[in-house]
Design a protein around this nucleic acid. Sequence first.
DNA 1: TTGCTCCTCACGTCACGTGAGGTGGC
DNA 2: TTGCTCCTCACGTCACGTGAGGTGGC
Lengths: 263, 263
Amino acid sequence: MARLLSIGEFSRMTHLSVKALRHYDDVGLLQPAAVDASSGYRRYAVAQVPSAQVIRRFRDLDMPLDRIKDVLDAPDAATRDRIIVDHLAEMERKLDQTQVTVASLRMLLEGSATGAIDHRSIAPVRAVAVRARVKWDDAEAWLSDAFDAIRATIARIGAERCGPDGALYAPAFFEAHDGDVLAFAPARAVAHDDVVDVPGGMYAVTVHEGSFATLDTAYAALGTHVTERAIGADGPIREHYVVSGYDADDEHDWRTEVCWPIR
Amino acid sequence: MARLLSIGEFSRMTHLSVKALRHYDDVGLLQPAAVDASSGYRRYAVAQVPSAQVIRRFRDLDMPLDRIKDVLDAPDAATRDRIIVDHLAEMERKLDQTQVTVASLRMLLEGSATGAIDHRSIAPVRAVAVRARVKWDDAEAWLSDAFDAIRATIARIGAERCGPDGALYAPAFFEAHDGDVLAFAPARAVAHDDVVDVPGGMYAVTVHEGSFATLDTAYAALGTHVTERAIGADGPIREHYVVSGYDADDEHDWRTEVCWPIR
DNA sequence: TTGCTCCTCACGTCACGTGAGGTGGC
DNA sequence: TTGCTCCTCACGTCACGTGAGGTGGC
């Protein structure tokens, strides 16, 4: 009863190009209902149109083919919806970033002022910490999870907080966009798996106000300052999250200290 | 006087990865202030930091490297700003599309109704027209320009309008996302370079309401209808822009007739 | 029968990332 | 002097697009 469609007819009906349809067949995302054994001609069923429409829409939303496959293969509606909601949330975050980027672009092109830089000796401090090798694009999510975990640990072992959240970033994190990060919360605590001694030292420090998307301006100012004075030293870069997502919902109100090691 | 920076230092200051910096050098987007002749070591100047920051922001906005180069090489601020404004406008359009796509995705997953389909004989008609080979992604912009040009021609030669704007789409436009499109406006007019006779014929027709981003649902409905009855015929697909951007600002109010050739 | 549709490689594109293998600078 | 930074290939990734060269269906 079901008349099958040629790839060309299916393409016109779904607005997916023939090349795209063949690619989706290759990767197993959308396989034709039948393939002629002798000619290799692909035959699609009318019933496959809805899947094709869903694929097209997710591709319009830049969802990777793998994740689209997960959506189509989801065992139940709840699983499916979770993947979709996650993706939409991700898009929304990206969109917020876009607004910030556009605004900061305008400031950059107009040439704007940067904050003051001072030199500071930071003392070693004991802290509850989490360490991992982190990829650049995963950093915000990882950091957020890390501080949630750290807070849970502090509560569990009954440690006493004594400073704002901070993190140490290995040079490779910036240079290869993949490197070691140590997230820490200063706290008076006894020895424990998750308790470390964060080393101190001399730093050039500036305060960044606003989203992490524009943190690079603070880095540029510090790097320039340190280079011009030839006072740079090796070691990780340190950030202190003086006002963060835990304290203010609006990214505009965030305050981050960036500390560049100096001699 | 100007101390130069190693690629690693420059990377940390700008948050561009070392690999990215080397790539930008290769394509001529951001070339180091100096390159050591014997070692090939790249040396960057502090003065190059602003360019790097601009590049980073445009990349965050998904601007292609070529266009970023155009921005940086712009001879004056006016040219530069035009490129930027164009890009932001493009992003805004894409964002609007995203909203439509999300909404239509929801409808698809919930399974929604489609409009009625009727069979109609369309008579040949004389029209002022523009024809070109058009790529899928350029189609909306091309169509908009085409109808502007057609309106200008109608006014110039004093033709009398006798029907809504329309267009014929060759199969290759859908199948290869690159094919011939004829945009036309029915008009009583004498022979002229831009006057053509648009052929008539039998069509299965449905009306699509809303953005072009969801036009594929009308195509799917028509294709299914035609396939199930085995009445499909060759030839271009025809669209009539009954209510378009000239009549309504809100895409929700647009009405497009989609005409699929039948026997 | 003609030509149009469809097929399968193989390679290109874009903006890098991922190693491999080797050399130079502090 | 050691090892860390930097170098250059060469190839991989992602989602297709672009031909080339050939066969099958109406």
